[in-house]
Each structure stands twice: as C-alpha cells, then as structure tokens.
Simulated assay, not measured.
Amino acid sequence: MATTASLSFAASLGAPATSRRAVRSRARSRVVRASVEIEPGSDPAPDASPAPAQIVVFGSNGKTGARCVQYAARAGIPVTACTRSGSWSPQNINLTSDERSLVTAAAGDVAKASAAELTSTLQGAGACIFAASASPSGGSPQDVDKAGLVAVARACIAANVPRLVIVSSGSVSKPLSPVYVFLNLFGGIMRAKIEGEDAVRSLYFKRDGADYVVVRPGGLTEDEPRGVGAIELNQGDDKSGRISRSDVAAICVEAAVGANGCVGNSTFECYWADSAKGLDAVGFSNMMGGTNTDGDYVSGMERRGNTWNEIFAGLKADAPGIAQQGVGPSL
C-alpha cells in the first residue's frame, strides 16, 4: 500500500481531523511495513512515495469496484466513488465511520457523462481505477467497456492524472480460447474489452507524465481475500485461474498508488497460484474448483511474492504502440 494524502485534504471532507489523523497514522504504519524490510526495534523508514491526493473509482457500485473503494478507504486513502446514480450504496461492504468519511460519492456514468464532466471529476486525482463494465442497467459492452473506457482515459489525460488502472479480463486477447468464446457470447464483451485496452495503449503512446496499468483477472469469486502471497501474476495472456474480487481490488489499488514498483504502461494477468491453468483447461477447472498439479503449464513469466514490491518486480511494460490482438485500435 502507500501512505495517505495530506491532512488538509482529509479535513476538507468534513471528518474530525483527530480521527482522520489516527486512521492515517495506522495506515501509514501498515504501508511502510508492507513495503520495506524493517530491522527489529528500528523505526520505519520515511515514505519516499506519498499516496495520491485521491483515487477515483468508476464502477464503484459494482462488485469489484466497491471492493476497490473499500480497500483504499481501509488503507486511509481518500477515494471518490463514481456511480451512475451519484450515490454509493454497495452491499456487503463494511467500513468504520472514520474509513467511510474518506469516501466521497460522485456521479460518473462512463457511457453518458460528457468529457467536461469526467475531466472535472478527475481534477486533482493521483490515480483512477476503471472498474465499470456492461450490465443490464448500465449500458452495452461497446458503450461501457470500450467507449466508456476511452472516454475516461481521455479525461485522465486532460486532468493530468498520473495513472489509470483498468480492470479487464483474462484471455481477452485470445479470441480462440474457450473462455473468450464463451464470455464473448454476452454482447461481444470480450471484443469490446480488448478494443478498449488497445485504444488506451494508443492514447498513452509516447506520453510523458501519465501511464496505464491493465489488470486481467481470472474467474472472479466472492471468497475472502487470500492476500498477496497467494496470488500469481503473469504476462502473455496464456494462463489464468480463479481469484477473489477482494484480491483483485487490492492489486488495483496497490498498482494505482505506484509506490510498490508496478511498472507503468503494463498489462498482466492475476489469479490464485494454486488455481493456475493454461487457457485450454482453465474454464472447466474454474467451474469445478480445480487446483493445479505437477506438469501444469508454465509460461516462464510467472511473478510471485510475499509483498507487493516482490510480486510487481520484473513486470514488463507493453511494447509501445502495439495492439494486443494484432489489429489496430479503433478509436
């Protein structure tokens, strides 16, 4: 994690400064211990990479977006929860009153908001997480997962937001894989996601001061988080597995704050290491709750670690301007 923004920002949200100071002090202690090795009995090293003033999360009433808001607030990071309605009311998200005071709800319908509205919402943000996706009440895949993502990316650039984190999907760049074929039956959602990804890559090509991170989860579950030590990252989109939404939220927030070595303009898959399979077998394995065994596919790009610094280490940035599906991005 990363430390929090200034106390002046916290006070502007309306909570008592003393309670906010206590929350942030606890968060800072957790963050430093998670990010650096500390000698027994010594004081934590000063944090050289303060967290952004706020994280803006689009799709905050969705199951993954809501957990991104929860994770950020529990870390003491101010967060703007953007939803179609302008109110943040997710189910099964528990926060203390101090943590809840770090959350500001805002209207942010990515399929309908104007460029000016999106840019205004993002002004002053240190990072943005795009966790919106098509739903029966929220627009088609083309409107949300592609055009909505492009609109938010452009607004991030206009508002000088340093980092955009995108929640996409494993196997999204492999149109012949069973998972892609199955999921794409739902309104062409996989095609919309990869086109949205590639459009972002084009927008950020040779752009200084701003970057993106694409997070491609495997099969999403409602299980309790298992933490960084249970997660495997990969690159190349040829291996996947299962992972809880809460663990995906942790990855997104940790990548958003950028203090743990997550390289910009990168794309990676994430899943629990013990559920990993090649794309040809992962769909059935996920449905059956399978685990991996000796001889399962190894890509050579696996990343493991007990801290965020360790698991992000060695990730490679995308080749500049190269579309992931082998076709030019459609803007």
Rank of each mutant, 00 (worst) to 15 (best):
P50T: 08
Q324S: 13
A17I: 15
S169K: 01
Q70F: 02
G108F: 07
N292M: 00
A313D: 13
Y180N: 07
L7A: 13
R191L: 01
V32M: 11
Q54T: 15
D109S: 14
W308T: 10
V167N: 15
V103M: 12
D211Q: 08
A11N: 05
R207L: 14
I251L: 14
S266F: 07
T80H: 04
I231P: 06
P320K: 06
V200G: 05
R84N: 04
L331M: 14
T293R: 12
A105T: 12
N306Q: 13
S60R: 07
C262H: 12
V228I: 14
T80V: 15
S87F: 13
M288V: 00
G86Y: 13
A2W: 08
R303M: 10
A15V: 04
V69A: 10
D318H: 00
R84G: 03
L203H: 03
G290R: 01
G188M: 09
L122F: 12
R242T: 11
K316I: 13
I55A: 09
A255N: 08
M190H: 07
A48L: 14
A11K: 15
C262P: 11
N309R: 15
G139F: 07
A17V: 15
D237N: 14
E117M: 02
M288N: 04
S169R: 02
S85K: 02
A249R: 08
G289Q: 11
N92C: 01
A147S: 12
E197V: 10
R28M: 02
E302T: 13
T293D: 00
F182Y: 07
N265M: 09
S285P: 02
R201G: 09
P141N: 08
R154P: 00
K174M: 08
G139H: 12
D109V: 07
I166C: 10
W272D: 10
A259Q: 13
E254G: 08
G139A: 03
V257E: 13
I38P: 00
E224Y: 06
D211N: 15
E117N: 01
S177K: 03
T291N: 06
S19R: 13
P90W: 11
D211R: 10
S19T: 06
S87G: 08
G283R: 12
T221Y: 06
A134T: 14
L185S: 10
V181R: 11
T119V: 02
T80P: 04
A11D: 06
A199R: 01
P40F: 01
G314T: 06
A2Y: 01
G289R: 05
V213Y: 02
V214M: 12
V263E: 12
A230R: 12
V150E: 07
A22W: 04
C156V: 05
V32G: 00
A155R: 04
L13S: 09
F58A: 10
C270W: 00
K63W: 01
P44T: 00
D145M: 02
P320A: 14
Q70Y: 05
A73R: 08
R84C: 06
A10Q: 06
P78G: 04
P52K: 11
P136G: 05
D43C: 03
D223I: 02
A125C: 14
V79S: 10
C252Y: 13
K239F: 05
P178T: 02
I251E: 02
L233C: 09
E254K: 09
T307P: 03
F205W: 07
N309K: 15
F186H: 05
P40S: 09
S97L: 08
I322P: 02
T18G: 08
